[in-house]
Design a protein around this nucleic acid. Structure first.
Lengths: 218, 218
DNA sequence: CAATCTACTGTCAGTCCATGACTTATGACA
DNA sequence: TGTCATAAGTCATGGACTGACAGTAGATTG
């Protein structure tokens, strides 16, 4: 599930989704927003779970029922992006070259953020700034990316009809794709708008495709 | 400084290095070895700093004077590998293509481990197994790799005469290089010898070079 | 060799993250 | 409405880390 699809489901099923579930989602986002703002204000390390919980008026214990830990907050988007990428991948024709598939999936993630409510795009950009300002968080983001990389590698291996435990090329394809993605996401001073991110990502993808030999990933 | 160079310095300066410093290095390695064995035996999470300290007969407080934290143990090699790669990079002729430079630096790291005392190669392989068995640790390793990636990007940017904050290609080059490196390191069942690692790394490098357009990184 | 300086080590107290066990509150639903 | 399931709060605990202070042992100098 992603922000985009969440919105969609919101339209078609708002009445069937119980009060309970709606309340939960509201709390989850409230925690996320409060935490993001606190992190940006006073830094990640110096923000305690107690503070975050206090800001949303829940007990610290409850915080851990919504997020596995402080780290997890920063990885909310990663969870959703991974899920969406795998969905997109599953829906693409089997003869589409692997790297092109991954680039499609990547573009789908950005499109999904834009398709969602504007406040979601704001969260996305805030998170981006946060990652840019705190190398430690960026590291966590990359670590989470490594997990995604494994899952994508399985999907790509299946698609290529090879054993993911043996085929190095599969991992290279996914690794290159993730690198392309990270390069596109990097801030380094500039930009604050979603458009600019999409633009830079397009640049990065173009650069990667220009760098690779045609048919290298077959 | 690396294991290889450490050994070298050992020969030429063992008398000039004070007892104090030698003792410190011995303690550092003792901690490292004890921790690695404990991690492999009973897992990373379920090994406490107290246990590690106990095994080496130091106080838990002292542990933190040698390593910044439990995580840091797993990243000892990363520190040394990064340092060596930057050194190698600095010594290469300016007209050597960037990606080739990075592959050279990468090979130098492996050569350095092999050149060092056999127990260092053992540590290297143990660590490799540990990372393979614990996804969480692998994540930390990748996160540390992201830091190295930044440093390498600066070196490559200087070498290419571009601003590292603006030039996407520089980051792509380094990203692709790191991906190639990770693919070569991956275990996935097989091997236990240093030779096999070197072999797989060579495969991975060959695969990468075959995938990239000639002159893509200029 | 002795006195002194310096830096490593241990002890102690305290903070924060995280989790398990148990109790209370609240939405779901017959 | 009353019962049930699940969410939220409370309490207690353990483990990672840090700062402050004291003791100890290698280094240095005369």
């Amino acid at each position: 599930m992603t922000y985009g699809t969440l919105c969609h489901k919101g339209f078609e099923g708002v009445t069937t989704v119980g009060l309970r579930e709606r309340k939960k989602e509201k709390t989850r986002l409230a925690i996320f927003d409060a935490a993001l703002d606190l992190f940006l204000e006073q830094g990640y390390e110096s923000t305690t779970v107690e503070q975050i919980a206090g800001a949303v008026e829940i007990s610290p214990r409850t915080f851990f029922r919504y997020f596995t830990g402080k780290d997890h907050l920063v990885l909310l988007f990663h969870d959703q992006a991974e899920e969406l990428m795998l969905e997109v991948l599953a829906g693409l024709p089997p003869d589409e070259p692997p790297f092109a598939c991954l680039m499609r999936a990547l573009r789908a993630v950005l499109a999904d953020v834009r398709a969602a409510a504007p406040e979601h795009a704001d969260r996305f950009m805030k998170l981006r700034r946060l990652l840019d300002e705190h190398p430690r968080l960026f590291g966590q983001s990359v670590a989470r990316g490594a997990e995604t990389e494994r899952h994508l590698a399985e999907a790509i291996a299946a698609r290529r009809g090879v054993d993911p435990d043996r085929d190095q090329l599969t991992h290279l394809i996914v690794g290159f794709a993730m690198s392309t993605m990270r390069v596109g996401f990097e801030c380094s001073r500039q930009d604050g708008t979603m458009e600019e991110v999409q633009e830079r990502m397009a640049e990065s993808i173009a650069l990667a495709e220009r760098s690779l030999r045609p048919g290298w990933d077959l």
